[in-house]
Amino acid sequence: MNATVTNDETPLMTKDLAALHTPAPPQEPLLQVRGVTLRYNTPEYLVTATYKVSFDLNRGDRLVLLGPSGCGKSTLLKAIGGHIRPAEGEILLHGKAITRPGTDRGMVFQEFDQLLPWKTALENIVFAIRNTRRTTRAEVVDEAGTLLKKVNLGGFEHSYPHSLSGGMKQRVAIARCLAVHSAIILMDEPFASLDALTRRKMQEDLLALWSESRFTMLFVTHSVEEALTLGSRVIILSSRPGQVSAEFDIDITAHNELSNPVLIRLRERISRILFKDAPEYSI
């Protein structure tokens, strides 16, 4: 059973839904991660971040990579972004190997300094669009303004990043990602540095954005709650070197309610898997 939302009013959404319901021809997954081993150098060691990780990502998925700190999930995301080359295996997007960064993969980072500090919120989005597409400036400004309103930042168009709060900066970063119409949006713990209340609001808003435009999303987190809230699929990576230890489909509703008994049971299972190999600490 798949995620269905019935109370659609906007024509955009119904169109998207129609596309969702027509039986799609058997197609290869949007992103294929095939036995990827990632290694990087520190001054003293050669660190193996992930070892032979494989998974697929389909169009419209909300795939969450869940794992303890240092399981190589961020490194994996950077590899998909094209910033790191796999030591072994391959990553295919549209069936073609990823060799370099590109506009078909938008990235939202955890760090607040991902916005260009010398550009206003609006100009940050305009810059993103103008570097990736050929359009007139007036059109781009219009589009950027609409996107800012979509992420609830109407009125902050001309604010510089330093005057925005952490949550607002992440909102701009998400809007900027949506602006370039990437095939996949890669999110590297974007809400990890936010306070609990803001994080919840951001998660809700992200889901609302997703049900509006159904982008494909790969989300990295170390929080079980966040994974269950946001994911339509969850992949659990073991700690270093990261390996896929379990995979779950969460096809309940578009907006997952954590109080759902199915999710509560799932959460317990995931916790057991995650903490099985965790070292024991004496308090």
């Binding site: 910033h83 960064p101 590109g102 990235m107 370039v180």
Partner: peptide
């Protein structure tokens, strides 16, 4: 990475 991501 943001800059490289725009293909710059």
């Amino acid at each position: 990475m943001v800059g490289r991501g725009y293909g710059l």
